[in-house]
Every structure is written in structure tokens, then in C-alpha cells.
Amino acid sequence: MLKQMAQSFYRSVLDEVGVPASLSSAIQDHPALRQVVFGEKKTASSRDIQQWENLGRSARGLDAPQGVLVGWTDTQGSYASIDLPVTALSRLVTTRTVEQFTCDITEIETLGAAKSNLSEYSNLDEFAEQRCANLLGDISKEGLLKMLEHDQIRSVGANATDTLSRYGWDGRLNLLNEGGAHHFAAARYIAKHMDIPVPICTTLHEYVFDPLAVAQLNQQFDIFAIGDPAHDARAHLALQDAFKKVRATFFIGSLPWSAGDHARDASAIFLLKNDRKSERIADLFRKEGFMDLGQVLESKLAVQLSATKTTRVRSHQPSELGM
């Protein structure tokens, strides 16, 4: 008992001088703080693509504008909540619309919706082979045309209504279909194996990182992923209590979860780089092996820049199907 009291007193002394001793202890007592399941998951579903425009969004929801971080700081002797507008965060992802964007059906790599679970398949070829085998009995031009004539295929022809999306950090073309997933996947599979061009011309919505915003965000903050298990709030409460004891400024918000990810048991924590206490905490997180989201962000930007350098405008052959 006396030993525990002495340790607690010693941690309090260190906390008072800006050394995050209580936070170090909380990490040891709550391993769940390190346990973050957040990684790239490439599947046949566009809903599994991470949404980086949501990085740092507050749990308060719609009343917290994009680009405003919510956190706690020591102000005038009181440890209180604070909102911080961050310009780099508000323009981290930019969007543009390309009208009459043209590609081939084989360049579509994910779908937005299907009666089957697209997340169970790593790509559309696998989805077609395993879930659309009953539609692949006729690998021919006639079989392809039959698939494309399905009434829920709305991406081919002069009156296409389904649109496309592409995320710079992912690079793939996604068809935002409302139906016809199985017939589309079968048509794509047949066209690929028969080497028959099937042009798609529709609106493309692109989402890309602003490289300057990425650089500015990483210059302003150290960003880490922190486990926040919904079934056990003790770890998160211990984290907040430890920050309060050292009176360190921190901000917390959402990770860029994909739309289809339901197990969101982690958060992003932002630490100011020009603050001595925050820098010590960042060093502790690195030592303890916490996921460095700043590094993840840089790696995602590298994917985008690499894709930009290698992208070439391709002219597609006219369709042999008369569509």
C-alpha cells in the first residue's frame, strides 16, 4: 500500500513538471490503448475505401464543422475544453468533377452496391467467378451483350446514369451503381476474357489530397491512433485522466474510417508540435509503438503522387457491340 502511494506521489511530481508519468502508467495498465485495428482493406466494394476527409471529425457530429478539432487544454489555471480551427485539415481533401469521363468496363475495380457482400472478395474477377458463375455460361460477344442489356445496368450507353468515383490514396475506379452488380461483374469478366472494348462515359467524382495541406498538418501536429474500445470505457477514461494530470493540450477525433467499417473502436489524437508537454507525449507514444497517423498519411500521399506520375490518357477502341 505504501509503495503504491509512493509511486503515485512520484508520478504526480513528474506530471507537475511536464513529464507524462501518469500517462505512461495508464498505457501499461490499459494495453487496449495500443490495440488499433485500422488498416487498408482492398476489396471489390468501394465502401471499404478509407475516407480521409473525415480525419479528426468530432464525435459531436453535425454541429462540429469540418476542420475544427475538439480537445482539452490548460487555460488560466483551469483544464477546459477547446475548439481549434485547422485550415490544413479543412482542405486536406479536395474534390473535382469530370463530366463525360471515359474508361473501359475492365478498368472498373469496385462497385458501390450488390445483393451479395462485396467485402468478401478481393476484386471483381473473384466476385464474378464465385458469385456470378451462373451468368458466365456463354463467354462470347453474344453473352456479353446479353449481360449489358440487363435493365439494372445503368453505366453503359448514351443514357448512362451511374457515376464513377476515384480516391487519390486508393487509385481505383469505382462504379457507384444502384443495382445490377452481378450482371455488370459478369459483363466485365466476359469483356476482359474476350478482349472486347466496352466504353463507359459518365461523370467522375475525384477526391485527392492537397499535398500542401498534408505537409502543413504534419508540421503542426503529431497524430496517433488510440484504441478506444466501446465495450470498456476504462482505458479511454484513464487516458483522459492522465492528460488532465499533466495538463497537456490534446485534440481527439475520428479516424478516416471507410463507410463500410462498423467496428470503430479507435480515435485519432492530435498533439501540437510547438508544445513541450505534447512533444514529450508524442515521444512516449512512439516508444510504446502507437500507430503514427502522420506517417500513414505521408504513405497515402505517396500512392497518390505515384499514380499521378504514371497516369496516361488512353484512347479506347470503339465498342464492337454498337453501344
Rank of each mutant, 00 (worst) to 15 (best):
residue 219 Q to R: 10
residue 279 E to S: 07
residue 274 N to F: 00
residue 293 L to P: 05
residue 251 F to W: 06
residue 274 N to M: 03
residue 243 F to R: 09
residue 203 T to C: 08
residue 292 D to V: 07
residue 222 D to M: 01
residue 249 T to G: 02
residue 206 E to T: 14
residue 205 H to K: 07
residue 252 I to D: 08
residue 243 F to M: 14
residue 222 D to Q: 04
residue 207 Y to G: 10
residue 257 W to G: 01
residue 258 S to L: 07
residue 261 D to F: 14
residue 220 Q to K: 07
residue 227 G to R: 05
residue 254 S to E: 09
residue 240 Q to H: 15
residue 216 Q to L: 10
residue 219 Q to F: 02
residue 289 G to S: 11
residue 238 A to P: 10
residue 270 F to K: 02
residue 267 S to G: 08
residue 298 E to S: 13
residue 295 Q to G: 09
residue 251 F to N: 00
residue 210 D to R: 10
residue 246 V to W: 00
residue 205 H to M: 07
residue 286 R to A: 07
residue 206 E to Y: 08
residue 272 L to K: 00
residue 289 G to T: 05
residue 200 I to K: 01
residue 218 N to E: 11
residue 270 F to C: 03
residue 256 P to R: 02
residue 240 Q to K: 15
residue 224 F to Y: 10
residue 244 K to A: 09
residue 273 K to A: 01
residue 263 A to C: 15
residue 211 P to N: 02
residue 245 K to M: 08
residue 285 F to A: 13
residue 283 D to C: 08
residue 205 H to A: 05
residue 210 D to Y: 12
residue 289 G to N: 06
residue 283 D to V: 06
residue 237 L to T: 15
residue 230 A to K: 14
residue 290 F to E: 03
residue 213 A to K: 05
residue 217 L to G: 04
residue 232 D to C: 13
residue 208 V to F: 08
residue 254 S to H: 09
residue 201 C to H: 12
residue 206 E to W: 06
residue 255 L to G: 04
residue 285 F to P: 11
residue 222 D to A: 08
residue 246 V to T: 05
residue 292 D to T: 07
residue 251 F to Q: 02
residue 285 F to R: 03
residue 244 K to E: 06
residue 231 H to N: 15
residue 232 D to Y: 11
residue 256 P to C: 04
residue 231 H to E: 15
residue 262 H to N: 10
residue 220 Q to D: 06
residue 291 M to E: 10
residue 259 A to Y: 13
residue 268 A to I: 11
residue 286 R to P: 01
residue 250 F to E: 01
residue 203 T to P: 00
residue 215 A to S: 13
residue 252 I to L: 15
residue 235 A to V: 10
residue 229 P to G: 04
residue 210 D to G: 09
residue 274 N to V: 00
residue 284 L to Q: 03
residue 241 D to H: 14
